[in-house]
Protein backbone atom coordinates (compact mmCIF):
# COMPACT_ATOMS: atom_id res chain seq x y z
CA UNK A 1 0.00 0.00 0.00
CA UNK A 2 1.22 3.53 -0.72
CA UNK A 3 2.38 5.03 2.54
CA UNK A 4 4.28 8.09 3.73
CA UNK A 5 5.66 9.37 7.01
CA UNK A 6 2.97 11.76 8.16
CA UNK A 7 2.29 13.86 11.27
CA UNK A 8 -0.80 12.96 13.29
CA UNK A 9 -2.44 16.33 12.72
CA UNK A 10 -1.89 16.02 8.96
CA UNK A 11 -3.35 12.52 9.00
CA UNK A 12 -6.63 14.01 10.22
CA UNK A 13 -6.81 16.15 7.09
CA UNK A 14 -5.95 13.17 4.89
CA UNK A 15 -8.75 11.15 6.47
CA UNK A 16 -11.26 13.98 6.30
CA UNK A 17 -10.62 14.74 2.65
CA UNK A 18 -10.84 11.12 1.51
CA UNK A 19 -14.03 10.90 3.59
CA UNK A 20 -15.62 13.58 1.41
CA UNK A 21 -15.32 16.45 3.88
CA UNK A 22 -15.46 19.64 1.84
CA UNK A 23 -15.55 22.38 4.46
CA UNK A 24 -13.10 23.30 7.20
CA UNK A 25 -13.48 26.20 9.60
CA UNK A 26 -10.93 26.77 12.34
CA UNK A 27 -8.96 29.04 14.60
CA UNK A 28 -5.27 28.67 15.51
CA UNK A 29 -4.36 26.94 18.75
CA UNK A 30 -1.34 24.86 19.73
CA UNK A 31 -1.06 21.87 19.49
CA UNK A 32 -3.85 21.58 16.90
CA UNK A 33 -2.81 24.37 14.51
CA UNK A 34 -1.25 22.04 11.94
CA UNK A 35 -4.74 20.70 11.19
CA UNK A 36 -5.84 24.24 10.33
CA UNK A 37 -2.69 24.88 8.31
CA UNK A 38 -2.93 21.62 6.38
CA UNK A 39 -6.60 22.36 5.65
CA UNK A 40 -5.66 25.82 4.33
CA UNK A 41 -3.19 24.15 2.00
CA UNK A 42 -5.11 21.13 0.73
CA UNK A 43 -8.79 22.10 0.81
CA UNK A 44 -8.60 24.98 -1.71
CA UNK A 45 -6.28 22.91 -3.93
CA UNK A 46 -9.29 20.84 -5.05
CA UNK A 47 -12.08 23.35 -4.62
CA UNK A 48 -12.98 22.50 -1.07
CA UNK A 49 -13.82 25.27 1.32
CA UNK A 50 -11.61 26.73 4.02
CA UNK A 51 -12.14 29.75 6.28
CA UNK A 52 -9.92 30.86 9.14
CA UNK A 53 -12.62 32.05 11.51
CA UNK A 54 -12.41 35.05 13.82
CA UNK A 55 -12.92 32.93 16.94
CA UNK A 56 -13.53 29.40 18.13
CA UNK A 57 -17.22 30.28 18.53
CA UNK A 58 -17.45 31.58 14.97
CA UNK A 59 -15.60 28.50 13.71
CA UNK A 60 -18.00 26.03 15.33
CA UNK A 61 -20.96 28.06 14.09
CA UNK A 62 -19.62 27.99 10.54
CA UNK A 63 -19.46 24.22 11.07
CA UNK A 64 -23.10 24.36 12.21
CA UNK A 65 -23.97 26.20 8.99
CA UNK A 66 -22.20 23.85 6.59
CA UNK A 67 -23.57 20.84 8.50
CA UNK A 68 -27.07 22.33 8.28
CA UNK A 69 -26.53 22.52 4.52
CA UNK A 70 -25.89 18.76 4.62
CA UNK A 71 -22.15 18.87 3.91
CA UNK A 72 -19.35 16.95 5.56
CA UNK A 73 -17.52 19.47 7.73
CA UNK A 74 -14.59 19.27 10.11
CA UNK A 75 -13.48 21.34 13.10
CA UNK A 76 -10.34 21.01 15.17
CA UNK A 77 -9.10 22.61 18.35
CA UNK A 78 -7.55 22.00 21.73
CA UNK A 79 -8.65 22.40 25.39
CA UNK A 80 -9.25 26.16 25.75
CA UNK A 81 -10.68 26.31 22.23
CA UNK A 82 -12.90 23.30 22.89
CA UNK A 83 -14.30 25.07 25.95
CA UNK A 84 -15.29 27.99 23.73
CA UNK A 85 -16.88 25.67 21.19
CA UNK A 86 -19.22 24.01 23.68
CA UNK A 87 -22.10 26.41 23.00
CA UNK A 88 -22.03 25.52 19.33
CA UNK A 89 -21.65 21.80 19.97
CA UNK A 90 -24.75 21.84 22.18
CA UNK A 91 -26.73 23.51 19.37
CA UNK A 92 -25.37 21.00 16.85
CA UNK A 93 -26.39 18.10 19.08
CA UNK A 94 -29.79 19.70 19.74
CA UNK A 95 -30.46 20.32 16.06
CA UNK A 96 -29.16 16.80 15.27
CA UNK A 97 -26.53 17.87 12.79
CA UNK A 98 -23.60 15.66 11.78
CA UNK A 99 -20.04 16.93 12.09
CA UNK A 100 -16.60 15.85 13.24
CA UNK A 101 -14.60 17.76 15.83
CA UNK A 102 -10.99 16.90 16.63
CA UNK A 103 -9.64 17.74 20.09
CA UNK A 104 -5.83 17.64 20.32
CA UNK A 105 -5.91 17.76 24.09
CA UNK A 106 -3.33 19.90 25.89
CA UNK A 107 -2.55 20.39 29.56
CA UNK A 108 -4.98 22.40 31.67
CA UNK A 109 -6.81 23.82 33.47
CA UNK A 110 -6.95 27.41 32.26
CA UNK A 111 -4.25 28.35 29.84
CA UNK A 112 -2.17 25.43 31.15
CA UNK A 113 0.48 24.67 28.58
CA UNK A 114 0.86 23.11 25.15
CA UNK A 115 2.05 19.71 26.37
CA UNK A 116 -0.19 16.64 26.12
CA UNK A 117 -2.86 15.63 28.60
CA UNK A 118 -6.09 13.62 28.45
CA UNK A 119 -8.00 15.91 30.76
CA UNK A 120 -10.77 16.81 28.29
CA UNK A 121 -12.25 13.32 28.84
CA UNK A 122 -15.27 14.47 30.82
CA UNK A 123 -15.92 17.45 28.56
CA UNK A 124 -15.95 15.28 25.44
CA UNK A 125 -17.52 12.10 26.80
CA UNK A 126 -20.20 13.54 29.09
CA UNK A 127 -21.50 16.21 26.72
CA UNK A 128 -19.58 19.35 27.59
CA UNK A 129 -22.14 22.02 26.80
CA UNK A 130 -25.61 22.67 28.22
CA UNK A 131 -28.41 20.14 27.99
CA UNK A 132 -28.76 16.35 27.99
CA UNK A 133 -26.76 15.35 24.96
CA UNK A 134 -23.83 13.15 24.09
CA UNK A 135 -21.08 13.21 21.52
CA UNK A 136 -19.84 10.02 19.97
CA UNK A 137 -16.17 9.94 21.04
CA UNK A 138 -13.40 8.02 19.28
CA UNK A 139 -9.90 7.67 20.74
CA UNK A 140 -7.12 6.94 18.24
CA UNK A 141 -3.66 5.91 19.40
CA UNK A 142 -1.56 6.16 16.24
CA UNK A 143 -1.10 8.33 13.19
CA UNK A 144 -2.84 5.67 11.11
CA UNK A 145 -5.86 5.80 13.40
CA UNK A 146 -5.90 9.62 13.32
CA UNK A 147 -6.70 9.18 9.62
CA UNK A 148 -8.86 6.07 9.78
CA UNK A 149 -10.96 7.22 12.75
CA UNK A 150 -11.64 10.54 11.05
CA UNK A 151 -13.17 8.60 8.17
CA UNK A 152 -15.11 6.40 10.56
CA UNK A 153 -16.22 9.50 12.47
CA UNK A 154 -17.91 10.96 9.38
CA UNK A 155 -19.78 7.71 8.79
CA UNK A 156 -21.02 7.65 12.39
CA UNK A 157 -21.86 11.37 12.36
CA UNK A 158 -24.15 10.91 9.36
CA UNK A 159 -25.52 7.55 10.47
CA UNK A 160 -26.79 9.12 13.69
CA UNK A 161 -26.87 12.83 12.74
CA UNK A 162 -24.72 13.57 15.75
CA UNK A 163 -21.45 15.35 16.52
CA UNK A 164 -18.46 13.01 16.74
CA UNK A 165 -15.37 14.00 18.70
CA UNK A 166 -11.96 12.56 17.91
CA UNK A 167 -10.25 12.74 21.31
CA UNK A 168 -6.51 12.79 20.73
CA UNK A 169 -3.65 14.60 22.47
CA UNK A 170 -0.55 16.67 21.83
CA UNK A 171 1.62 13.60 21.24
CA UNK A 172 -0.67 12.03 18.66
CA UNK A 173 -1.03 15.40 16.97
CA UNK A 174 2.69 16.00 16.58
CA UNK A 175 4.21 12.56 16.20
CA UNK A 176 5.16 11.21 12.81
CA UNK A 177 4.60 7.62 11.76
CA UNK A 178 3.99 5.80 8.50
CA UNK A 179 0.49 6.37 7.16
CA UNK A 180 -1.17 4.09 4.63
CA UNK A 181 -3.36 6.32 2.50
CA UNK A 182 -7.07 5.51 2.16
CA UNK A 183 -7.97 3.13 -0.66
CA UNK A 184 -11.17 4.91 -1.60
CA UNK A 185 -12.44 8.45 -1.80
CA UNK A 186 -16.00 9.18 -0.76
CA UNK A 187 -18.18 11.54 -2.76
CA UNK A 188 -20.71 12.88 -0.34
CA UNK A 189 -24.30 13.56 -1.39
CA UNK A 190 -26.64 15.82 0.50
CA UNK A 191 -29.60 14.26 2.25
CA UNK A 192 -32.47 16.45 1.08
CA UNK A 193 -34.81 15.06 3.73
CA UNK A 194 -33.36 17.34 6.44
CA UNK A 195 -30.62 19.60 5.04
CA UNK A 196 -31.18 23.30 4.28
CA UNK A 197 -29.06 23.88 1.21
CA UNK A 198 -30.67 26.88 -0.46
CA UNK A 199 -32.39 24.96 -3.25
CA UNK A 200 -35.86 23.77 -4.21
CA UNK A 201 -35.36 20.26 -2.87
CA UNK A 202 -34.65 21.51 0.65
CA UNK A 203 -36.65 24.73 0.97
CA UNK A 204 -39.31 23.09 3.15
CA UNK A 205 -36.74 22.09 5.75
CA UNK A 206 -35.93 23.71 9.06
CA UNK A 207 -32.86 23.24 11.23
CA UNK A 208 -33.53 24.28 14.81
CA UNK A 209 -32.99 23.35 18.42
CA UNK A 210 -35.78 25.41 19.98
CA UNK A 211 -39.10 23.99 21.17
CA UNK A 212 -41.07 26.31 23.43
CA UNK A 213 -43.64 23.71 24.35
CA UNK A 214 -42.40 21.72 27.36
CA UNK A 215 -43.87 18.44 26.17
CA UNK A 216 -42.52 18.90 22.68
CA UNK A 217 -39.02 19.51 24.00
CA UNK A 218 -39.37 16.58 26.38
CA UNK A 219 -40.28 14.35 23.44
CA UNK A 220 -37.25 15.65 21.55
CA UNK A 221 -35.04 14.77 24.51
CA UNK A 222 -36.59 11.32 24.80
CA UNK A 223 -35.86 10.80 21.13
CA UNK A 224 -32.25 11.89 21.62
CA UNK A 225 -31.81 9.51 24.56
CA UNK A 226 -33.19 6.65 22.47
CA UNK A 227 -30.61 7.51 19.81
CA UNK A 228 -27.83 7.41 22.40
CA UNK A 229 -29.13 4.02 23.55
CA UNK A 230 -28.92 2.73 19.97
CA UNK A 231 -25.38 4.04 19.72
CA UNK A 232 -24.50 2.31 22.99
CA UNK A 233 -26.07 -0.89 21.68
CA UNK A 234 -24.36 -0.93 18.29
CA UNK A 235 -21.15 1.04 18.18
CA UNK A 236 -18.97 -0.02 21.11
CA UNK A 237 -15.40 -0.73 20.06
CA UNK A 238 -12.45 -1.76 22.14
CA UNK A 239 -9.20 -3.60 21.75
CA UNK A 240 -7.84 -6.16 24.17
CA UNK A 241 -4.23 -7.28 24.51
CA UNK A 242 -3.25 -10.37 26.51
CA UNK A 243 -6.40 -10.16 28.63
CA UNK A 244 -7.43 -13.83 28.14
CA UNK A 245 -5.70 -15.02 31.30
CA UNK A 246 -4.90 -11.65 32.89
CA UNK A 247 -5.28 -10.96 36.61
CA UNK A 248 -4.41 -7.28 36.31
CA UNK A 249 -6.08 -5.23 33.61
CA UNK A 250 -4.76 -1.86 32.53
CA UNK A 251 -7.50 0.31 31.07
CA UNK A 252 -6.10 3.03 28.87
CA UNK A 253 -6.84 4.96 25.67
CA UNK A 254 -4.96 7.17 23.25
CA UNK A 255 -1.22 7.66 23.57
CA UNK A 256 -1.25 6.30 27.15
CA UNK A 257 -2.53 2.96 25.85
CA UNK A 258 0.68 2.49 23.86
CA UNK A 259 2.81 2.99 26.93
CA UNK A 260 0.48 0.66 28.84
CA UNK A 261 0.98 -1.89 26.10
CA UNK A 262 4.74 -1.84 26.72
CA UNK A 263 4.11 -2.13 30.45
CA UNK A 264 2.01 -5.27 29.90
CA UNK A 265 4.89 -6.92 28.04
CA UNK A 266 7.34 -5.92 30.76
CA UNK A 267 5.05 -7.31 33.49
CA UNK A 268 4.57 -10.57 31.60
CA UNK A 269 8.36 -10.97 31.46
CA UNK A 270 8.28 -10.82 35.27
CA UNK A 271 5.62 -13.49 35.30
CA UNK A 272 2.75 -11.16 36.20
CA UNK A 273 -0.40 -11.86 34.22
CA UNK A 274 -1.18 -8.37 33.02
CA UNK A 275 -3.38 -7.33 30.12
CA UNK A 276 -4.55 -4.15 28.39
CA UNK A 277 -8.14 -3.13 27.78
CA UNK A 278 -8.29 -0.18 25.39
CA UNK A 279 -11.60 1.57 24.83
CA UNK A 280 -11.70 2.84 21.24
CA UNK A 281 -15.14 4.40 21.69
CA UNK A 282 -15.29 6.44 24.90
CA UNK A 283 -18.95 7.13 24.26
CA UNK A 284 -20.30 4.55 23.86
CA UNK A 285 -18.14 3.23 26.70
CA UNK A 286 -17.55 -0.55 26.71
CA UNK A 287 -19.49 -1.15 29.93
CA UNK A 288 -20.40 -4.79 29.32
CA UNK A 289 -16.98 -5.83 28.08
CA UNK A 290 -15.31 -4.42 31.19
CA UNK A 291 -17.97 -5.96 33.42
CA UNK A 292 -17.19 -9.38 31.93
CA UNK A 293 -13.57 -8.99 33.00
CA UNK A 294 -14.61 -7.80 36.44
CA UNK A 295 -16.84 -10.86 36.83
CA UNK A 296 -13.74 -12.95 36.25
CA UNK A 297 -12.15 -11.33 39.29
CA UNK A 298 -9.61 -9.11 37.56
CA UNK A 299 -8.07 -6.06 39.22
CA UNK A 300 -8.10 -2.78 37.30
CA UNK A 301 -5.68 0.09 36.84
CA UNK A 302 -6.74 3.21 34.97
CA UNK A 303 -3.84 4.68 33.01
CA UNK A 304 -4.72 8.22 31.91
CA UNK A 305 -3.15 11.67 31.79
CA UNK A 306 -5.95 13.13 33.90
CA UNK A 307 -7.34 12.98 37.43
CA UNK A 308 -9.20 9.70 37.18
CA UNK A 309 -11.89 11.02 34.84
CA UNK A 310 -12.00 7.68 33.03
CA UNK A 311 -11.49 5.80 36.30
CA UNK A 312 -14.98 6.94 37.33
CA UNK A 313 -16.39 5.11 34.32
CA UNK A 314 -14.29 2.01 35.03
CA UNK A 315 -15.65 2.00 38.59
CA UNK A 316 -19.20 2.23 37.27
CA UNK A 317 -18.62 -0.48 34.68
CA UNK A 318 -16.90 -2.97 36.96
CA UNK A 319 -18.65 -2.22 40.21
CA UNK A 320 -15.18 -2.10 41.81
CA UNK A 321 -14.55 0.97 43.88
CA UNK A 322 -10.96 -0.10 44.22
CA UNK A 323 -9.60 0.87 40.82
CA UNK A 324 -6.01 2.09 40.89
CA UNK A 325 -4.90 5.18 38.98
CA UNK A 326 -1.65 5.86 37.17
CA UNK A 327 -1.53 9.40 35.89
CA UNK A 328 0.66 12.34 35.03
CA UNK A 329 -0.27 15.98 34.51
CA UNK A 330 1.10 19.19 33.11
CA UNK A 331 2.32 17.84 29.77
CA UNK A 332 4.32 14.92 31.16
CA UNK A 333 3.79 11.50 29.66
CA UNK A 334 3.22 8.47 31.82
CA UNK A 335 6.35 6.35 31.94
CA UNK A 336 6.32 2.61 31.42
CA UNK A 337 8.04 1.90 34.73
CA UNK A 338 5.52 4.01 36.61
CA UNK A 339 2.81 1.68 35.32
CA UNK A 340 4.95 -1.38 36.00
CA UNK A 341 5.36 -0.34 39.65
CA UNK A 342 1.59 -0.10 40.02
CA UNK A 343 1.08 -3.47 38.34
CA UNK A 344 3.46 -5.04 40.84
CA UNK A 345 1.62 -3.36 43.69
CA UNK A 346 -1.81 -4.50 42.53
CA UNK A 347 -0.81 -8.05 41.46
Amino acid sequence: MPAQLVEGNSAVIVGAMYAGCDCFFGYPITPASEILQEASKYFPMIGRKFVQAESEEAAINMVYGAAAAGHRVLAASSGPGMSLKQEGISYIAGAELPCVIVDIVRAGPGLGNIGPEQSDYNQAVKGGGHGSYKNIVLAPNSVQEMCDFTIKAFDLAFKYRNPVVILADGVLGHMIEPLEFPKTAIEHHIDTSWAVAGNEATMKNLVTSIALDFNELEQHNVKLQAKYDRIQENEVEREEYRTEDADVILVSYGISSRIANSAVDAARKEGIKAGLFRPITLFPFPWDELKALADRGCSFISVEMSNGQMRDDIRLATGCKDVALVSRYGGNLIERDQILDMIREVA
Partner: peptide, 22 residues
Protein backbone atom coordinates in the same frame (compact mmCIF):
# COMPACT_ATOMS: atom_id res chain seq x y z
CA UNK B 1 -38.11 29.36 2.35
CA UNK B 2 -35.33 27.31 3.94
CA UNK B 3 -34.64 28.11 7.60
CA UNK B 4 -31.85 27.70 10.10
CA UNK B 5 -32.37 28.82 13.66
CA UNK B 6 -29.17 30.10 15.23
CA UNK B 7 -27.48 30.74 18.55
CA UNK B 8 -27.46 34.26 19.99
CA UNK B 9 -25.24 36.48 17.88
CA UNK B 10 -23.83 33.70 15.71
CA UNK B 11 -26.04 34.08 12.63
CA UNK B 12 -23.35 35.66 10.39
CA UNK B 13 -20.97 32.78 11.17
CA UNK B 14 -23.63 30.18 10.45
CA UNK B 15 -24.58 31.99 7.26
CA UNK B 16 -20.90 31.97 6.31
CA UNK B 17 -20.80 28.20 6.73
CA UNK B 18 -23.86 27.70 4.53
CA UNK B 19 -22.67 30.17 1.93
CA UNK B 20 -19.27 28.53 1.61
CA UNK B 21 -20.87 25.08 1.39
CA UNK B 22 -23.58 26.11 -1.09
Amino acid sequence: CGHVQTAHGRAPAIATGISRAE
